[in-house]
Amino acid sequence: MIRYWEKRFKSGILTENIELDKEFNAIKKELKKSIKKNFAGSLAIRMVDSGSCNACEAECNALSNPYYDLERLGISFVASPRHADIMLLSGVMTFNMYHHAWDCYEQMPNPKWVIALGDCAKNLSVFEKTYAIKGVDLPIDYTIKGCPPSPKDIILGLLEFLRSKE
């Protein structure tokens, strides 16, 4: 245990992009005024994979590593759509996931938004339409571009989305 604490102190704080904190605090102030009722100062995200290659999910998982530590901004991934403000949708929307994704969307309380993660949802990325791909017809409010978007792209994308909601 002593070794652990020694290592812990030596490595210090790894979290980067501290400058985002300031920006986010500024947005948060405005947010509080405009949609305080809806967000209560924090964003709850439900991640739904509708047929991606798993790279987008890996990058979302990376958001909670010490380098990015997304939760410090008040943005958290929740386990149920009923707790969520935003659906983060990755993938091409396959035939077999179509009804489940819509189910998930309908379970979310109003007001709700859908953010597309990666290029797949918008234009299938490098893939092509086949019989097994239905395509996304959920009402997408914002797209975070990239294949896959890096964790920093995702954070910036979320901030940009929040700004557009002011």
């Binding site: 047929g51 991606s52 993938g91 396959t94 077999n96 996931m97 893939f127 092509e128 086949t130 097994a132």
Partner: peptide, 11 residues
């Protein structure tokens, strides 16, 4: 499984 079936082989 096969929720993510995209038919890549056919594609």
């Amino acid at each position: 499984h096969f929720y993510k079936y995209r038919a890549i082989e056919k594609m």
